[in-house]
Design a protein around this nucleic acid. Structure first.
Lengths: 227, 227
DNA sequence: CCGGGCCGTAACAAGTCCGTAACAACGGGG
DNA sequence: CCCCGTTGTTACGGACTTGTTACGGCCCGG
Protein backbone atom coordinates (compact mmCIF):
# COMPACT_ATOMS: atom_id res chain seq x y z
CA UNK A 1 0.00 0.00 0.00
CA UNK A 2 1.20 3.48 -0.82
CA UNK A 3 1.44 6.37 1.56
CA UNK A 4 1.93 10.06 1.25
CA UNK A 5 0.02 13.29 1.14
CA UNK A 6 -1.29 14.41 -2.23
CA UNK A 7 -2.73 17.82 -2.92
CA UNK A 8 -4.87 18.24 -6.01
CA UNK A 9 -5.69 21.68 -7.41
CA UNK A 10 -8.21 21.35 -10.23
CA UNK A 11 -11.36 23.28 -11.04
CA UNK A 12 -13.22 20.68 -13.08
CA UNK A 13 -15.21 18.69 -10.50
CA UNK A 14 -15.45 15.58 -12.66
CA UNK A 15 -11.69 15.29 -12.97
CA UNK A 16 -11.12 16.35 -9.38
CA UNK A 17 -13.37 13.68 -7.88
CA UNK A 18 -12.02 11.03 -10.20
CA UNK A 19 -8.48 11.79 -9.17
CA UNK A 20 -9.34 11.97 -5.51
CA UNK A 21 -11.10 8.62 -5.48
CA UNK A 22 -8.32 6.89 -7.32
CA UNK A 23 -5.59 8.24 -5.11
CA UNK A 24 -7.58 7.53 -1.96
CA UNK A 25 -8.11 3.94 -3.11
CA UNK A 26 -4.39 3.65 -3.76
CA UNK A 27 -3.72 4.47 -0.12
CA UNK A 28 -2.80 8.14 -0.18
CA UNK A 29 -4.04 10.98 1.94
CA UNK A 30 -5.71 13.50 -0.33
CA UNK A 31 -6.76 17.11 -0.02
CA UNK A 32 -8.22 19.19 -2.80
CA UNK A 33 -8.75 22.76 -3.87
CA UNK A 34 -10.68 24.17 -6.82
CA UNK A 35 -8.76 27.40 -7.17
CA UNK A 36 -5.22 28.65 -6.86
CA UNK A 37 -5.20 30.86 -3.79
CA UNK A 38 -6.67 28.26 -1.46
CA UNK A 39 -4.54 25.57 -3.02
CA UNK A 40 -1.41 27.55 -2.39
CA UNK A 41 -2.49 28.06 1.18
CA UNK A 42 -2.96 24.31 1.63
CA UNK A 43 0.39 23.56 0.00
CA UNK A 44 2.06 25.78 2.54
CA UNK A 45 0.24 24.69 5.63
CA UNK A 46 -0.52 21.03 5.04
CA UNK A 47 2.91 20.33 3.54
CA UNK A 48 1.89 17.64 1.04
CA UNK A 49 4.39 15.30 -0.56
CA UNK A 50 3.15 15.82 -4.10
CA UNK A 51 1.08 18.39 -5.92
CA UNK A 52 -1.14 17.67 -8.93
CA UNK A 53 -1.76 21.05 -10.48
CA UNK A 54 -4.15 22.07 -13.20
CA UNK A 55 -2.76 25.00 -15.15
CA UNK A 56 -6.06 26.56 -16.15
CA UNK A 57 -7.68 27.80 -12.97
CA UNK A 58 -10.05 30.61 -12.10
CA UNK A 59 -8.33 33.45 -10.25
CA UNK A 60 -4.71 32.64 -9.54
CA UNK A 61 -3.62 30.22 -12.27
CA UNK A 62 -1.29 27.26 -12.09
CA UNK A 63 1.78 29.17 -13.19
CA UNK A 64 1.41 31.60 -10.36
CA UNK A 65 0.96 28.80 -7.85
CA UNK A 66 4.12 27.24 -9.24
CA UNK A 67 6.08 30.44 -9.07
CA UNK A 68 4.92 31.26 -5.57
CA UNK A 69 5.91 27.84 -4.29
CA UNK A 70 9.32 27.96 -5.90
CA UNK A 71 10.12 31.46 -4.75
CA UNK A 72 9.12 30.28 -1.29
CA UNK A 73 11.83 27.66 -1.79
CA UNK A 74 9.52 24.75 -1.55
CA UNK A 75 10.88 21.60 -3.13
CA UNK A 76 7.47 19.98 -3.32
CA UNK A 77 7.27 17.86 -6.48
CA UNK A 78 4.74 19.35 -8.89
CA UNK A 79 3.00 17.43 -11.66
CA UNK A 80 1.08 19.65 -14.06
CA UNK A 81 -2.19 18.61 -15.66
CA UNK A 82 -2.46 20.21 -19.10
CA UNK A 83 -4.70 20.12 -22.11
CA UNK A 84 -3.36 18.33 -25.15
CA UNK A 85 -1.59 20.44 -27.72
CA UNK A 86 -0.47 23.14 -25.30
CA UNK A 87 3.21 22.36 -25.41
CA UNK A 88 4.21 25.96 -24.88
CA UNK A 89 2.35 25.89 -21.58
CA UNK A 90 4.29 22.83 -20.57
CA UNK A 91 7.58 24.49 -21.34
CA UNK A 92 6.55 27.56 -19.39
CA UNK A 93 5.52 25.44 -16.42
CA UNK A 94 8.69 23.40 -16.40
CA UNK A 95 10.72 26.58 -16.53
CA UNK A 96 8.82 27.82 -13.51
CA UNK A 97 9.95 24.79 -11.58
CA UNK A 98 7.36 22.09 -12.19
CA UNK A 99 8.76 18.57 -12.22
CA UNK A 100 6.54 16.72 -14.65
CA UNK A 101 3.32 16.89 -16.62
CA UNK A 102 0.56 14.74 -18.02
CA UNK A 103 -1.77 15.80 -20.81
CA UNK A 104 -5.53 15.39 -20.59
CA UNK A 105 -7.07 13.00 -21.24
CA UNK A 106 -4.62 10.90 -19.29
CA UNK A 107 -4.55 7.34 -18.08
CA UNK A 108 -5.10 7.19 -14.35
CA UNK A 109 -2.72 4.23 -14.21
CA UNK A 110 0.02 6.27 -15.74
CA UNK A 111 -0.58 9.17 -13.40
CA UNK A 112 -0.49 6.84 -10.38
CA UNK A 113 2.79 5.41 -11.62
CA UNK A 114 4.30 8.85 -12.10
CA UNK A 115 3.13 9.96 -8.70
CA UNK A 116 4.65 6.89 -7.04
CA UNK A 117 7.88 7.53 -8.87
CA UNK A 118 8.12 11.12 -7.68
CA UNK A 119 7.34 10.14 -4.13
CA UNK A 120 9.91 7.36 -4.21
CA UNK A 121 12.55 9.62 -5.62
CA UNK A 122 11.86 12.15 -2.97
CA UNK A 123 11.91 9.66 -0.14
CA UNK A 124 15.15 8.13 -1.29
CA UNK A 125 16.82 11.46 -0.73
CA UNK A 126 16.72 10.82 3.00
CA UNK A 127 18.70 7.72 3.96
CA UNK A 128 17.15 5.51 6.58
CA UNK A 129 20.30 5.57 8.64
CA UNK A 130 22.19 8.80 9.14
CA UNK A 131 25.41 9.40 11.00
CA UNK A 132 25.64 12.57 13.05
CA UNK A 133 29.01 12.75 14.73
CA UNK A 134 28.81 10.22 17.55
CA UNK A 135 25.16 9.48 16.84
CA UNK A 136 23.35 7.18 14.48
CA UNK A 137 19.73 7.90 13.58
CA UNK A 138 17.56 5.13 12.23
CA UNK A 139 14.38 6.52 10.72
CA UNK A 140 12.73 3.16 10.16
CA UNK A 141 13.13 1.84 13.70
CA UNK A 142 12.97 5.38 15.08
CA UNK A 143 16.00 4.79 17.22
CA UNK A 144 18.92 6.98 18.16
CA UNK A 145 22.23 5.45 19.17
CA UNK A 146 25.05 7.43 20.64
CA UNK A 147 28.42 5.68 20.70
CA UNK A 148 26.42 2.53 20.08
CA UNK A 149 24.17 2.96 23.13
CA UNK A 150 20.45 3.49 22.73
CA UNK A 151 19.23 6.97 23.65
CA UNK A 152 15.52 7.40 24.30
CA UNK A 153 13.83 10.15 22.30
CA UNK A 154 10.32 11.34 23.01
CA UNK A 155 7.92 11.34 20.05
CA UNK A 156 8.21 15.09 19.64
CA UNK A 157 11.96 15.00 19.79
CA UNK A 158 12.14 12.30 17.14
CA UNK A 159 9.61 14.06 14.94
CA UNK A 160 11.66 17.20 15.11
CA UNK A 161 14.87 15.33 14.34
CA UNK A 162 13.23 13.63 11.38
CA UNK A 163 12.02 16.92 10.00
CA UNK A 164 15.50 18.34 10.32
CA UNK A 165 16.96 15.33 8.54
CA UNK A 166 14.50 15.76 5.69
CA UNK A 167 15.32 19.45 5.38
CA UNK A 168 19.04 19.85 5.89
CA UNK A 169 20.88 23.08 5.11
CA UNK A 170 17.74 25.14 5.03
CA UNK A 171 16.87 27.98 7.31
CA UNK A 172 13.52 26.83 8.70
CA UNK A 173 11.19 29.29 10.36
CA UNK A 174 9.58 28.35 13.64
CA UNK A 175 6.28 28.53 11.86
CA UNK A 176 7.33 26.03 9.23
CA UNK A 177 8.61 23.70 11.92
CA UNK A 178 5.39 24.01 13.90
CA UNK A 179 3.27 23.22 10.85
CA UNK A 180 5.37 20.24 9.90
CA UNK A 181 6.06 18.66 13.28
CA UNK A 182 3.18 19.78 15.49
CA UNK A 183 0.61 19.92 12.70
CA UNK A 184 -1.62 22.66 11.43
CA UNK A 185 -4.12 22.69 14.21
CA UNK A 186 -1.61 22.99 17.01
CA UNK A 187 -2.28 26.03 19.13
CA UNK A 188 1.10 26.40 20.68
CA UNK A 189 3.60 29.17 21.04
CA UNK A 190 6.58 29.44 18.77
CA UNK A 191 8.68 29.21 21.90
CA UNK A 192 7.69 25.57 22.11
CA UNK A 193 9.96 25.01 19.15
CA UNK A 194 12.85 26.54 21.08
CA UNK A 195 12.16 24.27 24.01
CA UNK A 196 12.01 21.17 21.84
CA UNK A 197 15.24 22.18 20.15
CA UNK A 198 16.94 22.60 23.50
CA UNK A 199 15.82 19.14 24.56
CA UNK A 200 16.93 17.57 21.30
CA UNK A 201 20.29 19.28 21.48
CA UNK A 202 20.89 17.73 24.90
CA UNK A 203 20.66 14.34 23.27
CA UNK A 204 22.39 14.68 19.93
CA UNK A 205 24.93 17.44 20.42
CA UNK A 206 28.30 16.81 21.98
CA UNK A 207 28.26 20.29 23.38
CA UNK A 208 24.66 21.57 23.53
CA UNK A 209 26.04 24.96 24.42
CA UNK A 210 27.86 25.21 21.11
CA UNK A 211 25.62 23.19 18.81
CA UNK A 212 27.13 21.66 15.70
CA UNK A 213 24.07 20.22 14.01
CA UNK A 214 21.11 22.35 15.04
CA UNK A 215 22.21 25.91 14.45
CA UNK A 216 20.20 28.92 15.48
CA UNK A 217 19.28 31.35 12.71
CA UNK A 218 18.47 34.55 14.52
CA UNK A 219 15.03 36.02 13.99
CA UNK A 220 14.15 33.11 11.69
CA UNK A 221 14.43 29.78 13.39
CA UNK A 222 16.90 26.95 12.98
CA UNK A 223 19.09 25.30 10.40
CA UNK A 224 20.19 21.70 10.45
CA UNK A 225 23.66 21.11 9.04
CA UNK A 226 25.18 17.71 8.45
CA UNK A 227 28.39 19.06 6.97
CA UNK B 1 19.01 41.73 -31.37
CA UNK B 2 16.74 42.94 -28.60
CA UNK B 3 13.05 42.52 -28.40
CA UNK B 4 10.27 43.99 -26.38
CA UNK B 5 7.70 46.74 -26.40
CA UNK B 6 8.80 50.14 -25.15
CA UNK B 7 6.44 52.99 -24.42
CA UNK B 8 7.91 56.49 -24.25
CA UNK B 9 6.00 59.38 -22.69
CA UNK B 10 7.85 62.63 -23.28
CA UNK B 11 6.66 66.07 -24.38
CA UNK B 12 9.90 67.42 -25.85
CA UNK B 13 9.81 66.31 -29.53
CA UNK B 14 13.59 66.46 -29.93
CA UNK B 15 14.18 64.02 -27.08
CA UNK B 16 11.18 61.90 -28.03
CA UNK B 17 12.29 61.32 -31.62
CA UNK B 18 15.86 60.70 -30.57
CA UNK B 19 14.78 58.05 -28.11
CA UNK B 20 12.36 56.46 -30.54
CA UNK B 21 14.96 56.14 -33.30
CA UNK B 22 17.57 54.69 -31.01
CA UNK B 23 15.26 52.10 -29.51
CA UNK B 24 13.86 51.18 -32.92
CA UNK B 25 17.38 50.70 -34.23
CA UNK B 26 18.16 48.52 -31.22
CA UNK B 27 15.35 46.20 -32.25
CA UNK B 28 12.49 47.20 -29.97
CA UNK B 29 8.90 47.97 -30.81
CA UNK B 30 8.19 51.55 -29.81
CA UNK B 31 5.07 53.62 -29.22
CA UNK B 32 5.04 57.18 -27.99
CA UNK B 33 2.83 59.72 -26.28
CA UNK B 34 3.41 63.40 -25.61
CA UNK B 35 1.17 63.73 -22.59
CA UNK B 36 0.13 61.73 -19.57
CA UNK B 37 -3.47 60.79 -20.13
CA UNK B 38 -2.92 59.23 -23.54
CA UNK B 39 0.28 57.62 -22.35
CA UNK B 40 -1.51 55.96 -19.47
CA UNK B 41 -4.17 54.75 -21.87
CA UNK B 42 -1.49 53.18 -24.10
CA UNK B 43 0.24 51.61 -21.11
CA UNK B 44 -3.02 49.87 -20.25
CA UNK B 45 -4.11 48.79 -23.69
CA UNK B 46 -0.85 48.07 -25.49
CA UNK B 47 0.77 46.39 -22.47
CA UNK B 48 4.37 47.43 -23.07
CA UNK B 49 7.32 45.72 -21.40
CA UNK B 50 8.99 48.93 -20.31
CA UNK B 51 8.00 52.55 -19.83
CA UNK B 52 10.28 55.55 -20.26
CA UNK B 53 8.54 58.38 -18.49
CA UNK B 54 9.28 62.07 -18.44
CA UNK B 55 8.26 63.59 -15.13
CA UNK B 56 7.47 67.08 -16.43
CA UNK B 57 4.47 66.72 -18.67
CA UNK B 58 1.57 68.97 -19.66
CA UNK B 59 -1.68 67.91 -18.05
CA UNK B 60 -1.28 64.71 -16.05
CA UNK B 61 2.33 64.63 -14.93
CA UNK B 62 4.68 61.70 -14.57
CA UNK B 63 3.99 61.16 -10.88
CA UNK B 64 0.31 60.69 -11.53
CA UNK B 65 0.99 58.26 -14.34
CA UNK B 66 3.23 56.35 -11.99
CA UNK B 67 0.72 56.31 -9.19
CA UNK B 68 -2.15 55.28 -11.45
CA UNK B 69 -0.17 52.37 -12.84
CA UNK B 70 0.92 51.16 -9.45
CA UNK B 71 -2.47 51.43 -7.81
CA UNK B 72 -3.71 49.37 -10.75
CA UNK B 73 -1.19 46.77 -9.61
CA UNK B 74 0.79 46.94 -12.80
CA UNK B 75 4.34 45.68 -12.49
CA UNK B 76 5.49 47.39 -15.65
CA UNK B 77 9.07 48.58 -15.16
CA UNK B 78 9.25 52.37 -15.19
CA UNK B 79 12.39 54.39 -15.92
CA UNK B 80 11.98 58.10 -15.22
CA UNK B 81 13.62 60.80 -17.29
CA UNK B 82 14.46 63.77 -15.08
CA UNK B 83 16.31 67.04 -15.19
CA UNK B 84 19.64 67.19 -13.40
CA UNK B 85 19.64 68.49 -9.88
CA UNK B 86 16.06 67.49 -9.15
CA UNK B 87 16.92 64.67 -6.82
CA UNK B 88 13.91 65.28 -4.62
CA UNK B 89 11.74 64.57 -7.67
CA UNK B 90 13.59 61.33 -8.20
CA UNK B 91 13.04 60.23 -4.62
CA UNK B 92 9.37 61.05 -4.93
CA UNK B 93 9.10 59.08 -8.15
CA UNK B 94 10.93 56.06 -6.82
CA UNK B 95 8.76 56.05 -3.73
CA UNK B 96 5.71 56.10 -5.99
CA UNK B 97 6.90 52.90 -7.55
CA UNK B 98 9.21 53.83 -10.40
CA UNK B 99 12.08 51.42 -10.88
CA UNK B 100 14.91 53.62 -12.01
CA UNK B 101 15.82 57.01 -13.42
CA UNK B 102 18.26 58.76 -15.70
CA UNK B 103 19.04 62.46 -15.57
CA UNK B 104 19.01 64.63 -18.67
CA UNK B 105 21.23 65.04 -20.52
CA UNK B 106 21.78 61.30 -20.51
CA UNK B 107 23.91 58.93 -22.51
CA UNK B 108 21.75 56.94 -24.88
CA UNK B 109 24.10 54.01 -24.40
CA UNK B 110 23.50 54.00 -20.70
CA UNK B 111 19.77 54.22 -21.13
CA UNK B 112 19.79 51.31 -23.57
CA UNK B 113 21.81 49.28 -21.09
CA UNK B 114 19.43 50.09 -18.25
CA UNK B 115 16.43 49.24 -20.38
CA UNK B 116 17.92 45.89 -21.34
CA UNK B 117 18.68 45.19 -17.70
CA UNK B 118 15.10 45.89 -16.61
CA UNK B 119 13.68 43.76 -19.37
CA UNK B 120 16.01 40.92 -18.46
CA UNK B 121 15.24 41.13 -14.78
CA UNK B 122 11.55 40.72 -15.44
CA UNK B 123 12.14 37.25 -16.80
CA UNK B 124 14.58 35.61 -14.46
CA UNK B 125 13.83 34.74 -10.90
CA UNK B 126 16.28 35.08 -8.08
CA UNK B 127 18.50 32.03 -7.90
CA UNK B 128 18.89 30.40 -4.53
CA UNK B 129 22.66 30.63 -4.81
CA UNK B 130 24.29 33.79 -6.10
CA UNK B 131 27.94 34.53 -6.72
CA UNK B 132 29.25 37.97 -5.80
CA UNK B 133 32.94 38.21 -6.54
CA UNK B 134 34.61 36.17 -3.82
CA UNK B 135 31.30 35.56 -2.03
CA UNK B 136 28.53 33.04 -2.38
CA UNK B 137 25.09 33.85 -1.02
CA UNK B 138 22.66 31.04 -0.28
CA UNK B 139 19.15 32.35 0.25
CA UNK B 140 17.82 28.95 1.25
CA UNK B 141 20.21 28.31 4.11
CA UNK B 142 20.75 32.02 4.72
CA UNK B 143 24.49 31.58 4.62
CA UNK B 144 27.25 33.72 3.21
CA UNK B 145 30.56 32.18 2.23
CA UNK B 146 33.61 34.17 1.33
CA UNK B 147 36.37 32.23 -0.38
CA UNK B 148 34.53 29.17 0.86
CA UNK B 149 34.57 30.20 4.51
CA UNK B 150 31.38 30.94 6.39
CA UNK B 151 30.82 34.57 7.30
CA UNK B 152 28.21 35.29 9.94
CA UNK B 153 25.58 37.85 8.97
CA UNK B 154 23.17 39.37 11.44
CA UNK B 155 19.45 39.12 10.59
CA UNK B 156 19.29 42.69 9.40
CA UNK B 157 22.41 42.34 7.31
CA UNK B 158 21.07 39.26 5.61
CA UNK B 159 17.65 40.80 5.10
CA UNK B 160 19.25 43.80 3.46
CA UNK B 161 21.43 41.63 1.25
CA UNK B 162 18.42 39.58 0.20
CA UNK B 163 16.49 42.70 -0.72
CA UNK B 164 19.41 43.93 -2.78
CA UNK B 165 19.64 40.58 -4.55
CA UNK B 166 15.96 40.70 -5.38
CA UNK B 167 16.27 44.26 -6.69
CA UNK B 168 19.53 44.50 -8.56
CA UNK B 169 20.44 47.43 -10.80
CA UNK B 170 17.78 49.61 -9.28
CA UNK B 171 18.20 52.87 -7.50
CA UNK B 172 16.53 52.24 -4.15
CA UNK B 173 15.58 55.07 -1.84
CA UNK B 174 16.27 54.74 1.85
CA UNK B 175 12.55 54.86 2.38
CA UNK B 176 11.95 51.91 0.08
CA UNK B 177 14.66 49.93 1.80
CA UNK B 178 13.22 50.74 5.21
CA UNK B 179 9.77 49.63 4.13
CA UNK B 180 11.00 46.42 2.62
CA UNK B 181 13.60 45.31 5.15
CA UNK B 182 12.54 46.95 8.41
CA UNK B 183 8.83 46.76 7.72
CA UNK B 184 6.17 49.40 7.30
CA UNK B 185 5.75 50.06 10.99
CA UNK B 186 9.39 50.66 11.77
CA UNK B 187 10.04 53.97 13.48
CA UNK B 188 13.68 54.38 12.69
CA UNK B 189 15.82 57.02 11.09
CA UNK B 190 16.89 56.76 7.49
CA UNK B 191 20.45 56.85 8.77
CA UNK B 192 19.90 53.35 10.08
CA UNK B 193 19.98 52.21 6.46
CA UNK B 194 23.39 53.82 6.04
CA UNK B 195 24.69 52.05 9.09
CA UNK B 196 23.37 48.69 7.95
CA UNK B 197 24.90 49.24 4.54
CA UNK B 198 28.26 50.03 6.10
CA UNK B 199 28.13 46.85 8.15
CA UNK B 200 27.13 44.75 5.15
CA UNK B 201 29.85 46.26 3.01
CA UNK B 202 32.45 45.20 5.58
CA UNK B 203 31.41 41.62 4.97
CA UNK B 204 30.77 41.35 1.25
CA UNK B 205 33.00 44.00 -0.32
CA UNK B 206 36.65 43.37 -0.98
CA UNK B 207 37.34 47.04 -0.41
CA UNK B 208 34.50 48.56 1.66
CA UNK B 209 35.90 52.02 0.96
CA UNK B 210 35.45 51.55 -2.77
CA UNK B 211 32.35 49.38 -2.89
CA UNK B 212 31.76 47.29 -5.98
CA UNK B 213 28.34 45.83 -5.24
CA UNK B 214 26.53 48.28 -2.99
CA UNK B 215 26.95 51.65 -4.67
CA UNK B 216 25.89 54.88 -3.07
CA UNK B 217 23.54 57.00 -5.17
CA UNK B 218 23.99 60.50 -3.83
CA UNK B 219 20.89 62.08 -2.34
CA UNK B 220 18.82 59.03 -3.37
CA UNK B 221 19.95 55.91 -1.61
CA UNK B 222 21.76 52.85 -2.88
CA UNK B 223 22.03 50.68 -5.94
CA UNK B 224 23.08 47.05 -5.95
CA UNK B 225 25.01 46.09 -9.05
CA UNK B 226 26.11 42.62 -10.01
CA UNK B 227 29.34 43.45 -11.82
C1' DC C 1 39.70 78.57 -0.46
C1' DC C 2 35.83 78.37 2.27
C1' DG C 3 31.26 76.47 3.64
C1' DG C 4 27.51 73.29 3.45
C1' DG C 5 25.31 69.12 2.50
C1' DC C 6 25.77 64.27 2.40
C1' DC C 7 27.55 60.02 3.80
C1' DG C 8 30.99 56.74 6.24
C1' DT C 9 31.95 55.17 10.63
C1' DA C 10 33.09 54.91 15.63
C1' DA C 11 31.09 54.88 20.25
C1' DC C 12 27.52 54.38 23.13
C1' DA C 13 22.86 53.11 24.54
C1' DA C 14 18.84 50.59 24.23
C1' DG C 15 16.37 46.88 22.76
C1' DT C 16 15.58 42.21 21.23
C1' DC C 17 16.04 37.38 20.96
C1' DC C 18 17.15 32.98 22.62
C1' DG C 19 18.80 29.32 26.06
C1' DT C 20 17.28 27.44 30.00
C1' DA C 21 15.18 26.59 34.46
C1' DA C 22 10.93 26.20 36.98
C1' DC C 23 6.44 25.09 36.94
C1' DA C 24 1.89 23.73 35.16
C1' DA C 25 -1.16 20.90 32.41
C1' DC C 26 -2.24 16.85 30.26
C1' DG C 27 -2.95 12.01 29.58
C1' DG C 28 -2.12 7.03 29.65
C1' DG C 29 -1.30 2.87 32.28
C1' DG C 30 -1.01 0.33 36.31
C1' DC D 1 -7.13 7.31 41.12
C1' DC D 2 -2.52 8.39 41.27
C1' DC D 3 2.00 8.56 39.25
C1' DC D 4 5.11 9.68 35.88
C1' DG D 5 6.65 10.92 31.36
C1' DT D 6 5.84 14.35 28.05
C1' DT D 7 4.91 18.77 26.51
C1' DG D 8 3.68 23.73 26.80
C1' DT D 9 4.19 28.29 29.17
C1' DT D 10 6.39 31.77 31.66
C1' DA D 11 10.21 34.26 33.48
C1' DC D 12 14.82 35.79 33.64
C1' DG D 13 19.59 36.71 32.42
C1' DG D 14 23.05 37.24 29.14
C1' DA D 15 24.64 37.86 24.63
C1' DC D 16 24.13 39.90 20.58
C1' DT D 17 21.91 43.20 17.46
C1' DT D 18 20.58 47.46 16.20
C1' DG D 19 19.45 52.56 16.50
C1' DT D 20 21.17 57.08 17.56
C1' DT D 21 24.33 60.54 17.99
C1' DA D 22 28.36 62.77 16.85
C1' DC D 23 32.34 63.72 14.29
C1' DG D 24 35.04 64.01 10.24
C1' DG D 25 35.99 63.52 5.32
C1' DC D 26 34.74 64.33 0.75
C1' DC D 27 32.75 66.55 -3.06
C1' DC D 28 30.77 70.77 -5.14
C1' DG D 29 29.50 75.32 -5.81
C1' DG D 30 30.48 79.88 -4.99
Amino acid sequence: MNSGKILIIEDDPAILFGLRDNFLRAGYEVKTAVEGQLGLELARTWQPDLLLLDLMLPGMDGYQVCRELRTAESDLPIVMLTAMGREEDVVKGLNLGADDYVTKPFSIQELLARAASHLRRRRRQVPLITLLGPCEVNLSSRELRRDGALVELTPKEFGLLEHFLRNPDRALTRDQILNAVWGLDAFVTERSVDRAVTLLRQKIEENPHRPRFIRTVQKIGYRFVVE
